[in-house]
Each structure stands twice: as structure tokens, then as C-alpha cells.
Design a protein around this nucleic acid. Structure first.
Lengths: 252, 252
DNA sequence: TGCCGGCTTTGATCTGGATCAAGAGATGCA
DNA sequence: TGCATCTCTTGATCCAGATCAAAGCCGGCA
């Protein structure tokens, strides 16, 4: 066993970390990733299925919409965005995936991916070949339940984008959501590195880039956040939560 | 067997019809209602479970949000609306239910209804006590699959309300959706009686009542529809579809 | 028959956010 | 090191739709 110990945040975002070993049952993220809730012996069965993906460069695609579902992926390091093409041919940013989050559920229903997923920064993933995973679920019912749970979460997760909230509410909810997800299942972190460009955030929230920029400036003026390029500090958590109050929590 | 024969539209909307008998396996709507796709012998098993509800008066509630799920309901005659209360205490119209459509799926997940459902006109329903229904699904797998199908449909059905479509697109999609649903699974009917007041439509589509009124006027001016109070004729189907083109079909 | 209270339409004005336009930092590359 | 490009911010203007306000219109009821 590798003796290096990871601190809670060591593997998050841009701070690359050496993973102690390549087993779900030993992974420091494991408690919050696909093996969440699995008893140790079942988590160990995941080890035999999981493979480590090659390092992915910025803008490199994990898969494209229309391709058959071959595997599910868990983000190991970095960040991804999933996009779809709308009926007028414009790209829609469906969502972002941070470390320990699952990618590929969009392809489960039809067996074909509905979105394209690309890396926002240098990133890496764990690969769970879908066929092998499904074979496991038949006798590991906890895993099946966990997959269902993650699907529901995915469905709910996009609630903030829908509804007719205004730009401030959407953005506040989005920033809080990110802050919650940086430490998965841990408490909210007040320092967040935004791994995506402004344009992607604006697209995802369905507001113009200019509006995003202005609302961010307003939030800073109101002392809700401090922002230096991609690095955000949440200064007034309660204030930010109050702005987003109308948007349902949408997270689990 | 009752010898009276119903024409395709006889039971729809305000035209009250005598139902030949009170069995799912004999019901003229059955082909498009809960028993859809069930082999005859399994449809007959539904008969033993189904009960006929009393006539419901306008504005009378079928159930309220927060009440435990006791039964699923199929609309027999009339129309219903389902509503929820948002975080500011305002009523949100979630959707409308027309004859042969199922009511109560909102309570399946939590065992407690998430919406309140009330009659828009004098209406009647078929009642399927949930417990008995669930006991059936365990050995009638077709029924379980049908229930899943209807749930997915319900989830998809509200897609038009989300997304950032403009008032014209939303409304065109809504009117087309109604026209499709009046003859369930049959072809679209060009004459539709809107069973709900304008205010409910506006609330559901998240536009102001005044905007709704103006867009309806515009549609008439453009020769897309003709409208006399609650009675709508679709004049230019292709035109209406073109206006709604950006909104995903959302129906099955 | 005439009045009252819901609905629905129509008009005037206001506003959040989009769009257009231009400048200011960053970042990359030769 | 300097130019080109991309990203982000800031300012000006425009527009869809909300809001405010005031009629019509209809059905119910005394």
C-alpha cells in the first residue's frame, strides 16, 4: 500500500495529487463516488471492473453525442462539461462534472449518449465498462440502487436552469452548488476555483455573457463574493443563499 | 354487454356520454388509458381493482398536496388541473389532465402527494387503489412497465414549460399538445375546447395573463387559429407547428 | 331588467436582460 | 519581446414581456 496520505482537499481541482493506488476500495474519493454506500466487499468487486483512463487534455472529448454507451466514468482530477446541440445547431452546456462525479448516465436510457463530454482542464477519469458494471448490478443490489440514486440526482440537478428564475437567483444557486460539490458531501467550501470559462457558465445558466459579468460584479459590490479571475471566495454565505432562496436545492 | 356504441369523440370534454359499462376491459378509452398495451386477460384483472368515483363539481379537490397516496385516478370525463405552492406561497399550475389521463403519479415516489388536483369542470374519475394496484404489478409485469412509461411521459411532459422559450413558442406548443391529447393517441383534432380559464394557462406557461391574451390575438390575426371564448379551431396547423418548432415534442 | 363580480381584452409604461460595440487584461506563439 | 488572439469587462441601446390601469363582456341573481 502506498503510504502517502491525502488531505481532504488534496485531490480537488487543479492541485494534482498522486493517488495512493488504483482501487475503488482504497480511493480517498471512494466514500463519495460510485462506491458510496457499498459495503467494503462489494466495493472491492468494483476494483476488478474499474480501469484508469489516460490523462486528458483540455478540450479533448471523452465521448460524443450519438456514440454508443461503452462505459461510465468517474472524474478523478480536473473537470468536464457536457454539451448538447439544440434544434438550431447551437451548443447548450448541460452541466459540469467535478472530481468524484459520474459521467455517462445520459446514455443509459437509450444506450447511446445524448451529450458530448469534454475536459475543461487537464483531467483524468476512472472507467467502468458498462457491460461489466451491469453484470455486477444483477447480484450486487446495493450498486443498482446507488446507480438509480445518481440518476435521480442528475435529473434534479438541472432544476436550477429550468424554472423562470432571474439571473441573480440562477447564478447564486450555481455558485453555491459548485461550492457544495468541491468537497463532495463534505461541508461547503468558501474558496472555489471555477474550472470553466465565463461563456460556459453563461450558456449553462442561459444568460448572456455580459449579464453574467455584470451580476458577478454586482455580487462583489454587495460583498457577497470576492472574485479574482477563476478564483472565488464566498464572503457572505447567508447573503448568497438568500439571493438563491427561490431556486430549489436540487442537490442531494 | 351494453350495445350502445361510442363514436371516437363522444366521451371527450364537455360532451357527457353514458359509458357502456364500468370495466376497464370494456371501456372505450381503455385502449389509450392505463390498460394500454395490456393483454385482455390482464386488463380484466384491472376490473376487479378499479372503482368508479362520484361526480366531482368544479373546483372540487381530488386530493391535496401532503396527503398520503391512496390511489391513482384516470380521468373519465371533464378535466383537472394539478397545482403546487411555490416557496413564496403562490400557486403554480403544474399541468392539466384530460380524459383517459392518469392522475396521482406525483405521489408515487414519496408516498405523499406533491401536488393538489382539482376539477376544472364537472368531472368524473376511475379510481385504482394504489395498494391493490401494486399487488397486481408484482405478477403482471406489463402493468409495471406501463406505469413506468406513464411516469416518464409525465416527467417529459413538462419540458415545454422549462427551457427559455418565448411566449409564442410556449403557447403554440401548449395548444398543439392539447389538440394531440383531446383524442388520445388518435390524430390531432382541430377543434379543441379549452377546459381551463386563461389565468390557469398563463400560470402554467409562466407568462402574464395579459401576454397570453395578446399572443392569442396575434395568432388569430396571423390566421393560425380561430378562438371563440373557450372554443379553439386550429386553422393553420403547419404554421402553428412552425412557431413551436424549438420546443421539444415532449409527448409520447 | 338591471346591477354585481368574475373573466378577458386592450392600452400605456416600466424593466430585466439581450444585443451591439468597444476597450482592457490575459495568454500564447513566433 | 512584441504582436495576435482569446477572455472578460463595461457602456449604450433595444426589446419581450411584466406590471399598472381601465374598459368590455359575460353569466348569475334579485
Amino acid at each position: 500500500m502506498n503510504s502517502s496520505v491525502l488531505t481532504a482537499g488534496a485531490w480537488q481541482q487543479s492541485e494534482e495529487a498522486v493517488v495512493p493506488d488504483h482501487l475503488c476500495s482504497r480511493c480517498p474519493r471512494g466514500r463519495f463516488c460510485l462506491p458510496l454506500g457499498l459495503p467494503l466487499d462489494e466495493a472491492q468487486r468494483l476494483d476488478s471492473v474499474m480501469r484508469i483512463g489516460r490523462v486528458m487534455q483540455t478540450k479533448q472529448y471523452l465521448f460524443h453525442a450519438g456514440e454508443p454507451l461503452k462505459a461510465l466514468y468517474a472524474v478523478r482530477t480536473g473537470a468536464f462539461k457536457s454539451t448538447a446541440i439544440d434544434c438550431d445547431g447551437y451548443e447548450q452546456v448541460i452541466g459540469f462534472q467535478l472530481p468524484s462525479e459520474l459521467i455517462g448516465l445520459d446514455g443509459v436510457h437509450a444506450g447511446v449518449h445524448q451529450c458530448s463530454v469534454s475536459a475543461l482542464t487537464v483531467s483524468s477519469v476512472c472507467i467502468f465498462p458498462y457491460k461489466a458494471l451491469m453484470e455486477m448490478t444483477s447480484d450486487v443490489s446495493t450498486l443498482a440502487r446507488q446507480l438509480m440514486r445518481l440518476m435521480c440526482k442528475e435529473i434534479n440537478g438541472n432544476m436550477a436552469v429550468i424554472g423562470d428564475y432571474m439571473a441573480e437567483e440562477r447564478l447564486a444557486a450555481f455558485l453555491l452548488g459548485l461550492a457544495m460539490r468541491v468537497h463532495p458531501r463534505g461541508e461547503l467550501s468558501t474558496r472555489v476555483v471555477l474550472p470553466m470559462p465565463r461563456a460556459d457558465i453563461a450558456n449553462h445558466l442561459r444568460i448572456a455573457g455580459e449579464t453574467l459579468s455584470r451580476v458577478l460584479a454586482r455580487f462583489q459590490g454587495q460583498g457577497l463574493i470576492e472574485l479574482d479571475h477563476r478564483v472565488m471566495h464566498i464572503v457572505d454565505l447567508d447573503g448568497l443563499e438568500h439571493v438563491s432562496r427561490r431556486v430549489p436545492p436540487a442537490s442531494l
